[in-house]
């Protein structure tokens, strides 16, 4: 039974080399898109009359914020798949996305606060979107902490899957309640969404950088999932076979 699904993509043994081949492609396209995006954001886009050049931070802040939300939903998707069909690979994919998602949230937070300083005069103004990002960061850290607290990989996969699904249901509720709370107290004057009117070139810059971030995330996630496989499948045959070959190869060279 094991031999037949060795070549089905859902088995780690078959996915390991395939992921290996895909990583350079995603990495390269991420680099190219990032270069174009940065060139637009830092050079091509005109200086804004109100915020001067400080607004250029949105070319990093907005894509990172988008990605932090998007990665969480993709993670919840893989978790649901892993929980539903009991496939180890999808659970490993969910596990590999969490750190990058947390980092994207972190980037969104500190670029947002660095942008807030010149525009509102303070690093943190309890703006609706920034507050929701902060809570999203806690959700990510909760999943990573739960993952580290459980030794048995199978239980860790399923527990983190339940947590990320419960979290995914709560993310829109949290965003809605924080926005409600924000408008109730501060009104919309102090809000990041009061970005300068969106010239076409700026939107293009942000979209390109968003895709760059997405390809970067895929490349990193594929790298990490391969490492997770090495860590977890060390008992199974294909890993030792993989490394037995390397060792022999090394001896010959």
């Amino acid at each position: 039974m094991a031999a037949s699904n060795k070549y089905k993509l859902s088995s780690p043994a078959a996915f390991y080399p395939v992921a290996g081949r895909m990583i350079p492609w995603f990495g390269a396209s991420a680099a190219v898109l990032a270069a174009i995006g940065l060139w637009i954001g830092l050079w091509l886009a005109p200086t804004d009359f109100a915020q001067g050049d400080a607004y250029r931070i949105i070319f990093i802040h907005v894509p990172a914020a988008w990605m932090s939300m998007f990665i969480y939903l993709v993670m919840a998707f893989w978790s649901a798949l892993g929980l539903g069909f009991n496939t180890r690979l999808s659970a490993m994919m969910a596990q590999s996305l969490a750190p990058t998602g947390a980092l994207m949230t972190l980037i969104a937070l500190f670029t947002g606060s660095l942008w807030g300083r010149p525009t509102w005069g303070t690093y943190w103004a309890w703006d609706a979107r920034m507050t929701s990002e902060l809570i999203l960061l806690f959700l990510y850290l909760g999943i990573i902490a739960l993952r580290n607290a459980i030794d048995d990989p199978r239980r860790a996969d399923r527990a983190c899957a339940v947590l990320s699904l419960v979290g995914a249901i709560n993310v829109p509720i949290i965003y809605f309640s924080v926005r409600w709370w924000n408008t109730l107290h501060q009104g919309s004057s102090v809000s990041l969404s009061a970005a300068p009117r969106m010239a076409a070139v700026m939107l293009a810059g942000m979209l390109i950088l968003a895709f760059a971030a997405w390809f970067y995330t895929i490349a990193v996630a594929l790298c990490r999932v391969r490492v997770i496989m090495l860590e977890r499948e060390s008992g199974s045959g294909w890993v030792s076979e993989l490394f037995a070959l390397n060792i022999v190869h090394l001896k010959k060279a």
């Binding site: 806690f138 909760g142 902490a145 739960l146 607290a149 459980i150 979290g167 809605f176 309640s177």
Partner: peptide, 23 residues
């Protein structure tokens, strides 16, 4: 239920649940 029998259960439980308590 998620943190049953885990090390550091109390603070882990707080980290998992308090964000969900925000709304």
């Amino acid at each position: 239920a998620l943190t049953l029998g885990l090390r550091g259960g109390g603070s882990l439980l707080a980290l998992l649940i308090l964000p969900l308590y925000v709304p």
